[in-house]
Design a protein around this nucleic acid. Structure first.
Lengths: 143, 143
DNA sequence: CCTAAAGTCTACTAACTTACTAGATTTATA
DNA sequence: TATAAATCTAGTAAGTTAGTAGACTTTAGG
């Protein structure tokens, strides 16, 4: 399961993607619209700013806006940033690899083998899911 | 990420699947072989017994053994039992569904849409991965 | 240049979950 | 009846999650 933090991040990004190139949006606006505690959202947005997904403008009339193009931000990137590994096991993780303490030999481990398959399929779907794709999809669905 | 509990469960089940129909195996044997704390493993095996995956025999010469056939136990079942939902969001979960607090309308939610795809692919791979499949795979790989 | 409105930074905390452990009890076999 | 095994009850320490509080900095506009 994704953490609330990660869910909030995705919702906030979709909200900003819907307002792409329309100037900065207040944290408060996003918080109100998406029902996210403002202070918590602050930390989340800051983290995404540091990751160069967002930019911000301080002072009056300031706020956050997408820095990357909506078609260049996918769910893989967001989840990795917020929650870490995508894989279900550390020993099959690409970005957060850790050796299995339990298994003797990774190469002949049937369990590892199964979860490598899960990882690959998950990455395939998540990398196709960009902000642009999500926004388009909900417009098509008639939002 | 799977919990340690779940990983232990899978390792224990594979160990028992390798010894299918060869009589009861002591908790201690499994614990030693798979490097699982014995007391913790006790609780895990008990839970799988209550779920009718394993049977046990008490007293001298007792132990645990697979009740279901190795080809009838897949990773979906084990993960659901140990960790709960497979999905990354409660609102797309089949067995552990919960309504999203954040989103207004589930039908037009592009986020939900993306994670439904992830869920389906994950379930596809995990349900193919039975204990029999895992054991065979590691024999083929030359364990 | 002052003020209000915005984001930034540091530090804390309550509640929950995870990964266990201890110890008494029950059951079955030889 | 002794012993070896699983079972049951009841904890607990450490880590993570989901926040909150409050002071600080920056900027636009009057």
């Amino acid at each position: 399961m994704l953490s609330k933090k990660c869910k909030y991040a995705i919702h906030a990004l979709v909200y900003l993607a819907e307002r792409y190139q329309q100037g900065p949006v207040h944290i408060q606006d996003i918080a109100d619209a998406q029902h996210i505690p403002k202070k918590f959202l602050e930390a989340i947005l800051l983290e995404m700013r540091n990751a160069k997904i967002l930019h911000s403008k301080k002072g009056k009339g300031g706020g956050y806006y997408l820095y990357k193009k909506p078609e260049d931000v996918n769910l893989v990137e967001i989840i990795r940033l917020m929650d870490g590994a995508i894989s279900m096991l550390p020993c099959v993780s690409i970005n957060y690899y850790e050796r299995c303490e339990e298994c003797r030999d990774e190469v002949t481990c049937g369990i590892r083998d199964a979860f490598t398959g899960v990882r690959d399929e998950t990455l395939k779907v998540l990398s196709r899911s960009t902000l642009a794709h999500i926004v388009k999809r909900q417009r098509d669905l008639g939002k």
